[in-house]
Amino acid sequence: MSLTSEPLSYILFILTICCFLIFIWIMFIIKNKNKKMLYSNIYNIGLVVVNIFPANPIYSFIFLLLLICNLLYFLFFILRPKVIERENEDIFIEKKNYSLDSGDINKIIDKNEQELGDS
């Protein structure tokens, strides 16, 4: 079987589908969000590599669908809850507090100057 043959493409296609099912199963098992992110990321790497092989448009299309599913899952089910979670933590500074308009910047400059004066 040559490296660019259709059967190899088919085998890889079946393997990817199996990996995707395993991926979904693992995702259900894992509760830790960081690990979920890691798995999703490694799956992305896998898809980038495997995407080279499909010799048939149908396989390519299914790879594309898998990629879209994974990215949407990553975006809406892992990243979004994580961002909302971070909103409740105090240690994170909202960037908007000091960089959006010149009025805010002036306040911060005044505050800095005051602190410098105090010291």
């Binding site: 992305n44 898809l47 995407n51 990629l67 990215l71 975006l75 961002v83 909103e87 500074i93 960037k95």
Partner: peptide, 23 residues
């Protein structure tokens, strides 16, 4: 696939950083 992956990941990494960013 590569193009879509690139644009989506460019959007996703926006949320990774030292500051909290609204979704």
């Amino acid at each position: 696939s590569y193009f879509f992956l690139a644009i989506m990941l460019i959007g996703i990494i926006f949320y990774f950083g030292e500051f909290k960013k609204e979704f």
